[in-house]
């Protein structure tokens, strides 16, 4: 306990406040789960009968299934590209001179600072001129740039915590520069690379603003399908199945990352 200002009474008030806020923070996640497994069409929080029919519709109904498959493909291609470029960029920036690194950091962070709508319109107009709107690979490329910072941030953070002397030690033992990167740095970065990949995947899988411009009439991604459903009044309960599945995937990925990071942390300590 490191708290001196509040006193017993004040701390009790703070705890009560935190409980209220936890409810506020997780309420939207909590509400979706029971609705997605209730059998009837209504949106009651406590269902009377359970059924997986909304999940069946997600994989059974061709329009939903196609959207789901397309979004998984786009997210996979985009996040793999972003992971490769992001890891190279993060390692490159960590080795560059301070001035160059400063400029590069500003450029590489920009995709999460500049509004998605601005980036989306920029791509849309360029792609429209090049007749690339509605094609699969250009959409993946656009998403790859959007999610690049999500890979670079965790990888950079990890890079700064790695002992710099490892690189010199590897060099003094005769490892070439690329061998040092592949055999010394990359294994140490692995958990953060995976975390970045997952962040990138989730963001791309959820992205609707840029996708609605670039997907054209033929490519309908899952968020676009959901967006349309919500604009129609949001009465399609398949949307709740999608969001619950996303929630589960996110929680599983989070558990994997935290276990992995804890493991590699204890390994680092025990090998000292």
């Amino acid at each position: 306990m490191n708290e001196y200002l509040l006193g017993l009474q004040g701390r009790r008030v703070l705890f009560a406040y935190a409980i209220v806020l936890i409810l506020f923070i997780i309420l939207p996640a909590l509400v979706l789960v029971p609705i997605s497994i209730s059998a009837d069409d209504s949106f009651v929080i406590i269902p009377e009968a359970f059924s997986l029919r909304w999940y069946e519709q997600l994989v059974g109904d061709p329009r939903w299934r196609n959207a789901l498959v397309l979004s998984l493909q786009v997210a996979a291609v985009a996040s793999v590209m972003a992971t490769i470029a992001g890891v190279l960029g993060a390692i490159g920036i960590s080795r560059a001179s301070p001035k160059v690194a400063k400029v590069l950091r500003l450029i590489f962070i920009a995709p999460i600072i500049v509004p998605l709508m601005v980036i989306g319109v920029g791509f849309y107009m360029l792609y429209a001129r090049m007749r690339l709107v509605g094609s699969f690979f250009p959409l993946c490329l656009a998403h790859a740039v959007l999610v690049l910072p999500f890979v670079m941030l965790p990888v950079s953070a990890r890079l700064y915590s790695i002992d710099k002397r490892l690189e010199w030690a590897a060099a003094s033992l005769g490892a070439g520069p690329y061998r040092t990167i592949f055999r010394v740095q990359l294994p140490l970065l692995a958990p953060s690379i995976f975390a970045g990949f997952v962040f990138a995947f989730i963001f791309s899988f959820d992205e609707v603003v840029v996708a609605q411009f670039l997907s054209g009439p033929r490519l309908e991604t899952l968020p676009r399908r959901m967006w349309e459903g919500i604009q129609m009044g949001g009465l399609e309960k398949t949307i709740t199945a999608v969001t619950t599945a996303q929630l589960l995937l996110a929680v599983v990925a989070m558990l994997i990352i935290s276990i992995w990071q804890r493991r590699s942390a204890t390994k680092a300590v025990s090998s000292k």
Partner: peptide, 9 residues
């Protein structure tokens, strides 16, 4: 959890 759950959701 909130941060990881889709904005659309």
């Amino acid at each position: 959890i909130s941060l990881w759950l889709s904005v659309l959701a």
